[in-house]
Amino acid sequence: MIEFEGVRVLVVEDEPVVAMCLEDILEGLGCVTIGPASRLAEGLALAENEPIDVAILDINLGGEWSTRIAEALRARGVPFAFASGYGTCPEGFDGPPMIEKPYREAEVIGTLRELLPP
């Protein structure tokens, strides 16, 4: 899909199979996946240092919360979306869109459109 060709998407998702799945969806859209990161430290390092256009963050990383990654992205002005099975945003983040897991291609497309400047 030409629309997202070459878009660099940071994926933070701690469930390997689910991460692979999202990776495949993004690959199908022509995006470049940064990660996937399955741990907080790993995700934070990528969020602070890699060139990134947009990010999708699983909220719960095996008991740790990804809010610090979100803060780092906000500081850099990188748009991001949260992903969760719960369907509720962490405290202090009302703005970002919410992707409810399991990931569906249509929803991923909608979210990327919302986040990326036209």
């Binding site: 469930e15 689910v18 799945c21 719960y86």
Partner: peptide, 17 residues
Amino acid sequence: NHRVKNTLAIVQGIAQQ
């Protein structure tokens, strides 16, 4: 709820793969 959603996400991932 969390576990069910998580398991569904895994199953979906496996199916897609």
